[in-house]
Simulated scan of single mutants.
Amino acid sequence: MGYTMKSVITAGLLTLGIQAAGLQAAQAENYSLMSAPFGSGSYVLGSALEQIVAANHPTIRISHSESPGFAFNHMLLQKEPEKRKTMIIGSGRAISALAVRGEPPFKEKLPPVKALANYNLGSNFLATLDPNIKTVADLKGKRVALGRPTQINWTLQPEKLLRVGWGLGKDVNIQFLGTQEAVTALLDGQVDAAVVGGYFDPLSQQMELSPQTTEFVAGAGGRAHFLEWGEEAVIKTDTAGMPMAPITIPGKALPTGQDLEGFADTISWTVSDEFPEEAAYEITKLIIENVDKFSKYHALGKLMSPEALTYGWKPEEFHPGALRAYKEAGLIK
């Protein structure tokens, strides 16, 4: 059988293509991401990160999956230490501090994590339909629905604010129902107040309410009332060991139209200090360069900006690779 020059060249190019594809596959760097429950803003933005990295990096790939919550993510790194070199987890400053100290919901001290980037700031507060409940102090002896026991922003921080920040101790009946279930219970009259909230950008002063909160406002029919924590209670709670920062959410960002003194906590992508420095650098660099694209995936992406990626963290709290990317971008000096 004879061979033409064209067939030889075609075969050669095909061989080179196969070899190149094999080489690229061999060089692929696979990492995983555990974010938060399915359907949450954290989950959607985690999926966005997976897709943005795949579309903009030749070898790094992130496989994203849901998790029960940030506390679970930290415990997973403790139980499976081999994942510390390959896994990104959803976390934040508050839950990270509790994990390192071994305080509830953790039963032992866990390895520290380092920040890659914020994707939001969480702010949660209480809502009620009872016009006689005007402040948190009026919840003495009342039923208050929070999220699941291991959730930081929806449960642990509000519980600490109630019991310590406002000094209600055991004089408040707290029920751990879950984020959606808490709102449902409030609308059905089964509890007197419930945790709601959303995600806040202190730079633009914009807020996106969580889906449960939006549902509550719609179902309340104009009777919705939000209870502010107050700066004093937030500082008292922070001093007691539950990290949080006082903020004031402007009335223009809320359906009630009234300013609300509350707290903020970072909601971030973090990694173990064993995570490869070059991978942390490349992933963080991609986040910085494509931060405007997250808005295409979820409304919470509109709250993301280069400056907000580092908000609330000290330079030494970033992974060295991430810190290098921020310094190159001029976001950290």
Rank of each mutant, 00 (worst) to 15 (best):
D238E: 11
L13S: 10
L254M: 10
P250M: 06
H74G: 01
K236P: 02
G165A: 06
S123N: 04
V172T: 10
L121I: 13
P149K: 03
A233W: 00
E282T: 15
E108I: 13
T213E: 02
S35Y: 02
P58D: 06
E277K: 11
H64N: 04
V271F: 06
A28P: 04
G17V: 01
L209Q: 04
E277L: 14
E215D: 15
L98Y: 06
T4K: 04
H57T: 08
A329D: 10
G169D: 01
A28I: 08
S40G: 04
P315V: 05
S204T: 15
T128S: 09
S295P: 10
K293M: 13
T128P: 05
A48T: 03
A99F: 04
H298E: 05
T310I: 14
I288A: 12
I52W: 00
L126V: 00
S91M: 03
N120Q: 11
P112Q: 12
L162D: 03
R61Y: 01
A28G: 07
I235V: 15
Y3Q: 10
L14H: 05
T179G: 08
D273C: 12
L177N: 00
S67V: 01
G46S: 05
A193E: 01
A218D: 12
A54C: 09
K236S: 10
S63E: 15
G330M: 12
L14V: 11
E261R: 15
R143E: 11
E50C: 04
H319F: 11
P246L: 06
I235D: 08
I52Q: 00
L116Q: 02
I235N: 09
G219L: 08
T86W: 04
I247E: 02
T150W: 01
E277C: 07
F72P: 01
H225Q: 12
E50K: 03
